[in-house]
C-alpha cells in the first residue's frame, strides 16, 4: 500500500506513452498526451498525502485542529490542470492546421509527405 499510488502513476504514464507512440490519429495522440499529464497529477498528490490528514482549507475547521496534507503540491497541480487544457487546445489547433495543409491526420501518412 505504501507504494501502490506511485506504481499506479507509473503505469498510467507508460500507458499514455504507448498510446502516443502507436496512435494512428493525431487527435487520439493528443488524448493520450493528456493521459500522460494526468499521471503526473496522481504522483504529485500521492507524494503530498498524509494519512489521517485533511485539506489545508480552514474556512470550515479551526487551524491546527486536524493534521493537514501538503498544500504546496496541490498548488502546483492546480494551475497545471488548467494550463494543460489550454496547451491541449493549442495542440488541437495544430492538428486542424495539419489536416488542412495535408488532408490527413495519420502520423504515418504525414511522415511520407515531404513539404
Amino acid at each position: 500500500m505504501s507504494v501502490l499510488p506511485y506504481l499506479a502513476a507509473g503505469w498510467v504514464f507508460l500507458v499514455g506513452c504507448y498510446g502516443l507512440a502507436t496512435s494512428r490519429n493525431l487527435i487520439h495522440a493528443v488524448g493520450c498526451l493528456s493521459v500522460c499529464q494526468s499521471s503526473t497529477y496522481v504522483l504529485l498528490l500521492a507524494v503530498g498525502y498524509r494519512r489521517g490528514g485533511t485539506a489545508p482549507v480552514f474556512s470550515d475547521i479551526a487551524p491546527g485542529s486536524r493534521p493537514v496534507v501538503d498544500p504546496v503540491v496541490q498548488a502546483l497541480v492546480l494551475t497545471d490542470v488548467v494550463v494543460g487544457a489550454t496547451v491541449t487546445a493549442l495542440l488541437l489547433a495544430l492538428v486542424i492546421q495539419t489536416a488542412k495543409r495535408h488532408g490527413t491526420v495519420d502520423p504515418d501518412e504525414l511522415s511520407e509527405l515531404r513539404g
Partner: peptide, 14 residues
C-alpha cells in the same frame, strides 16, 4: 512511504 508524516514545505506554507 505513501501517507507519511514528513512534509517540511507543507508546514512552513501553512
Amino acid at each position: 512511504g505513501f501517507g507519511g508524516t514528513s512534509h517540511p514545505y507543507g508546514e512552513r506554507a501553512v
